[in-house]
Nucleic acid binder design. Structure first.
Length: 259
DNA sequence: ATGGTAGCGGTGCTA
């Protein structure tokens, strides 16, 4: 089973690019972030035409996550538990019904800039809520995949110029520590496992020729529970997508699971 | 040191 995550940066502006990539890459399950659309305006039809079930959790203008799946989806839930007042659409879960049941969680973790400040506080509080949710799901001992835009640069080797990020919410010690605490629950970071070398990126800013200069960062991650990690066969990054016309600033990241 | 780009929605915010 091929599972991908892709921060699409506006699904309505990118629907043709998305369907083209889906046709080429043939993922079974896709976690989308930054759909920037309410559920009613989400372009379901071209995706359903390709054989995908579509579950969305959107809001006006910003944020928004979705799941596409060629296999049936069950027990879909929307929103990250732990704060009833939080109205930002950044978390969606579903169980993929295949050979074995697999719980997938798609997430768009808050950016957190400027730091320090209320947005940074929100990011860290959100990560604490995610820690609790991951812990609860791990207790089920089922295969779990937590995939999305984490807005965290885990290590210096995950940025072309780490010195440019030292004051940034994506790289501040508090963000990296919270990410490390997630891993220390027993999760496997699939891309790091597959590509231990430096210089592996998933995001290049639109500004200042970041793509042309390969000034990238690695912030899109796929974390696996032990039961999912046992089934990990391959992982990759579809970097070529970034060179196309009107691309997202992120590229798709994927894993192949024996499931 | 600064400004550089993009989507949404129809102005400024978010990234």
């Amino acid at each position: 089973m091929k599972i991908a995550t892709f921060n699409i940066n506006g699904v309505k502006a990118r629907i043709e690019a998305l369907t083209q990539w889906l046709t080429e890459a043939q993922p079974d399950v896709v976690l989308l972030q930054e759909i920037k659309s309410v559920d009613e305006a989400f372009p379901r039809e071209p995706l359903e035409s390709l054989g995908y079930n579509v579950e969305t959790h959107g809001q006006k203008s910003f944020n928004g996550v979705a799941i596409l799946s060629k296999l049936p989806l069950e027990d879909v839930t929307r929103g990250l538990p732990g704060d009833e007042a939080d109205e930002q659409a950044r978390w969606i879960e579903a169980t993929v019904v295949g050979k074995t049941a697999l719980r997938v969680c798609g997430l768009y973790l808050p950016n957190g800039n400027p730091a320090p400040g209320p947005k940074f506080d929100y990011k860290l509080a959100w990560m604490a809520r995610m820690q609790a949710r991951v812990q609860a799901l791990l207790a089920t001992e089922e295969p779990l995949v937590f995939a999305g835009d984490y807005n965290v640069i885990p290590q210096a080797e995950d940025a072309a110029h780490p010195e440019q990020w030292v004051e940034d919410a994506l790289y501040r010690p508090e963000s990296r520590a919270a990410f490390r605490r997630l891993l220390n629950l027993g999760l496997t970071e699939a891309i790091r496992t597959r590509f231990p070398q430096p210089g592996i990126y998933t995001f290049w800013d639109y500004q200042a020729g970041a793509w042309q200069r390969n000034n990238g960062i690695r912030i899109d991650h796929m974390l696996l529970s032990p039961q999912a990690a046992d089934r990990l066969r391959d992982a990759g990054i579809d970097k070529g997508i970034r060179a196309r016309d009107k691309p997202s600033d992120h590229v798709p990241v994927w894993i192949e699971l024996d499931a």
